[in-house]
Design a binder for these strands. Structure first.
Lengths: 243, 243
DNA sequence: ACCTGAACACCGTTCAAGT
DNA sequence: ACCTGAACACCGTTCAAGT
């Protein structure tokens, strides 16, 4: 209907796994996690719900595939582009730390743009999307010169931290969206709730309520990455000193 | 209006929020995440599905309440008991680091015993269960003597890491359970998959495949906590040196 | 090989009606 | 105030039947 002829070996509107995945991503982006439905999807693709099952095993499979398409894009971007244009112009290679930061920020931004990824990654466990991330982080950890014994835990820690932040941010997004609030109003409400907590039971949470109100998600995320990177470096130094 | 008299002023089998939450936890533990259904729940409680809505707003509310009941239990345990009996017998107070480790392990074990918590915590975003955890960690981070500016990010990092591991573990559990595999077989299969990856694209993942096969979840989890704690200490030292 | 669409077995949630 | 249970509007998935 819309697009011109490409490779007319097939009907332009014939189904394919890729087309289904693309439509799923659009649906998830526009309608949220609950928006991905075999009925909505088949309507968008102008078929019956059953047709989709010819190309996709089930809903879980579809979600993982959609997730993987996004993650693969992020990994490719990170591999191609350096942290920012300035750093690129200045010299050649960037440090492994910088690459890890770029990777982490890439994931942060992707999860910000597609909040549903956060929970999708928790449903895909040891599947391809997670492995991509794991590999990408692991290569940099190795380049960091961490002792072999520590590479596994360092990589796992970074991965879990990234997934944790992503999942939590996605949850916040969802919760804000459900109550039809924008980011600022949502954070304001949570901050109000925190401020109203009992002083004796929640002294810490109360004391940081105002920091929540206008904090920088992205900056805080990066601070956590730096904390872990610092811990890795520290453990490397300790190991070296013992030798 | 709620808990004036504990004595049996009501029929033994009358509904209450607590009874519903307890039954939900049992259902989730025994039948998994998908096992919590208003129909299954009402059957277990010998009522109609509609009756539950008198005490609970909706399914999300119920899941958060179930999650909170478990988390509250863990926090209470950590607050009461030290890391282990030996440490207790030896001296009085344990260090903030040890308390954080105990807290983290308590969460790990709880998420191991109730895998559904992992995903429930991602649906409860800024709600009570997360705040309990946040507060508990925050108090210890403060006790650590970290500079005020860093307390927020340190606490957030620890929280997100714990939630990330928990969510990922829960996902693995679910995936193993779906395919009717025990832990060892599941890890074996994943390790096989990793070993079969393309050497050029996944060198790191391939190289650690065997570490996966018989790794220690709990130990690795703690190693990540220690990495973050190390990073916190490192940043504290740096700040102090600059002064 | 690929697609159709009715049908099945569920689900969360509501609500008039009961006590 | 609390509970009942039928009913509603959905859902993922299947499958005989078509091309």
């Amino acid at each position: 209907m819309v697009k011109k002829t490409r490779s007319p070996q097939r009907r332009e509107d014939s189904l394919s796994r890729d087309r289904i995945v693309d439509a799923s991503i659009e649906l998830l982006d526009s309608a949220g996690e609950g928006g991905l439905t075999f009925r909505a999807l088949s309507e968008r693709l102008a078929t019956g719900p059953g047709a989709i099952y010819w190309h996709v095993a089930n809903k879980g499979d579809l979600l993982v595939a959609a997730c993987d398409a996004v993650i693969a894009g992020v990994m490719a971007e990170v591999a191609a582009a350096p942290l920012d244009a300035n750093a690129d112009a200045r010299a050649g290679a960037q440090s492994p730390e910088d690459t890890i930061r770029a990777l982490a920020l890439g994931m942060f931004d992707a999860m910000d743009a597609h909040p549903w990824i956060g929970s999708a990654l928790f449903q895909s466990a040891g599947a391809l999307p997670t492995v991509r991330l794991f590999e990408c982080i692991g290569q940099q950890v190795r380049a960091l010169g961490a002792p072999a014994a520590g590479q596994w835990s360092a990589t796992s820690a970074l991965l879990h931290y990234i997934l944790g932040v992503g999942g939590q941010n996605a949850a916040n997004r969802l919760s804000a969206q459900t109550r039809a609030l924008d980011r600022e109003d949502f954070l304001g409400e949570v901050a109000d709730t925190w401020s109203a907590l009992d002083e004796r039971d929640y002294p810490f949470t109360r004391s940081v309520a105002n920091q929540l109100r206008d904090h920088d998600d992205r900056g805080d995320f990066l601070a956590g990455i730096d904390l872990i990177l610092g811990g890795i470096q520290r453990s490397t130094e300790t190991k070296a000193r013992k030798r």
